[in-house]
Amino acid sequence: MTHDSISFRMTNKQKCFQIFRPQVEAFGEKHALSPKQVFTLTLVLDELITNILSYGYGDLDEHPIDVTLAIDGTRLSLEISDDARPFNILTAPEPELEVPLEDRTRQIGGMGVHIVKKLMHCIEYKREDGRNIVRLEKDITDDNACTA
């Protein structure tokens, strides 16, 4: 069974996408992940970190964003920890998927979160010591039973 993880810290002042994308790709290469799995992990990080950068901070200071990417057997997991405003992905509003596209008014902000929730499983959120900690899993074999 494979057990491995990588952790890295970025800040809101950096070009985060250009930092985490090569990290995810190197991790994917090391563990022979498929292009789809690498794409999913990259996209999920992108959507969540874009949300943090866009809506998370009420000041102009530099803030750390910590990411851990792990593989445990067939189970991939992703954890993001940040000190931005509280944001619980599990209670975030869904896009208006039943409303015709031309009539939607809030589909844009919600779509990124919707995509994350569809692509990942076993999502957990907690607010601890002033930090948002979100943990998401994805099974390589599409067995979506949660370990926790």
Binding site: P35, K36, F39, L43, I115, K118, L119
Partner: peptide
């Protein structure tokens, strides 16, 4: 193919 899923889930 690997991008198509994002069109499906959205």
């Amino acid at each position: 193919d690997y991008i198509r899923e994002v069109f499906e889930v959205s």
